[in-house]
Amino acid sequence: MRAPAQTFDAILFDLGGVLIELVGVEQMLRWSPALGSTDELWRRWLHSPAVRSFETGGCDRESFAAGVIDEFDLPVDPATFLRAFTHWPRTLFPGATALLASLAPRYRLASVSNTNDLHWERFEREWSLPACFHDNFPSYRVGKLKPDAEYFIHVLDALELPAGRVLFVDDNRLNVESAARLGIVARRVPNFAALRSTLDALGLLGRDTNGELR
């Protein structure tokens, strides 16, 4: 027998790795093998001055590229890095927009993404992804970043919801732990399949008359 659905008013979705297939991690590990692991890459990326400046709207693309190359000792020039970086978000996972459409009538959906103007332009132009949400909080417009508590506080204040009524899903452990410390119900989902499984386990996915997930 399925457990009753937990009560939420809103669901916050990370984008890269959760709804969007990314290729940037593998690229960075090839360029900088000394990083050693995905966890170490994410730790350094989330604390990188160049990344934090660019993804809070604080610098231009060229300065960002030069800064990342210097910080991570990458064997490429800024133009090469930017060409690759622009396409790190490869494509939406199959079923992503249908999943959001099925949830939208019942929950307030918000995207909560560390991102930048390069990637956000693609999300809008190629996939119309921001239109799938009731609210969008791209970091380069908000001026704050995950996993900083200030980012999540900004989102909660904008939604005017208590933390315990909000579910947050992200593929990054640091982001999930930060949100949980504020009382947000946070779950780590390493990919789209895990996202669906997590939502189902929480009783949030609808089912058809045969009991199949919609």
Rank of each mutant, 00 (worst) to 15 (best):
S113D: 14
R2C: 03
D170C: 15
S139K: 01
P130A: 10
W127D: 08
E62N: 13
D73K: 11
G17E: 05
G58D: 06
L156Q: 08
A84C: 05
L161W: 01
L205N: 11
G57P: 00
A193D: 11
N191Q: 07
G58P: 01
F72K: 01
W45G: 04
E62M: 10
P138T: 04
V51Q: 12
L156M: 13
T38L: 07
D200V: 06
V18D: 04
P105D: 09
A34K: 07
D117E: 13
P75W: 09
R108F: 01
Y151D: 10
L74R: 11
R2V: 07
P89G: 12
L204Q: 12
L204E: 11
V18L: 11
M28G: 07
D170K: 03
D117N: 10
F8A: 14
D171V: 01
N172A: 12
P33A: 08
L156W: 03
A79C: 10
E126Y: 04
A131Q: 14
D200K: 13
L29V: 04
G16H: 00
L156A: 11
P33R: 11
F152T: 00
R214P: 00
G58M: 04
G143A: 14
V189G: 02
R141D: 03
D60Q: 14
P94Q: 12
V51D: 03
A201L: 08
W42F: 15
P138W: 05
L161E: 09
D200N: 15
A50V: 01
H154T: 10
D39G: 11
W120L: 08
V176D: 01
T115C: 04
P49E: 15
R108W: 01
D171Y: 05
F137C: 08
E21V: 10
R61W: 03
K146W: 05
D73T: 11
A110T: 00
G67V: 00
E150A: 13
W31G: 07
R122V: 07
R187K: 13
L195N: 01
L22C: 06
T80V: 14
A193M: 07
A65C: 07
F72H: 02
E124S: 10
T115K: 01
E21I: 09
D171A: 09
L19W: 01
A179L: 03
R106L: 05
D39H: 09
H47N: 15
L118Q: 13
L167F: 13
P89N: 13
R125T: 12
S128G: 07
D70P: 00
T91W: 04
E71P: 02
P190D: 15
L15N: 02
E150N: 07
A5Y: 12
Y151K: 03
W45T: 01
D14E: 15
A179W: 00
E177D: 15
V51G: 02
I20N: 05
V155G: 06
P94L: 12
L167R: 02
T38E: 15
K144M: 15
F81D: 00
T80P: 08
L118K: 02
A110N: 05
R214I: 14
T86P: 00
L46D: 14
L195Q: 04
F54M: 03
T86W: 07
G57E: 09
D39E: 15
S102L: 06
G67T: 02
T115F: 02
P162V: 14
D9G: 06
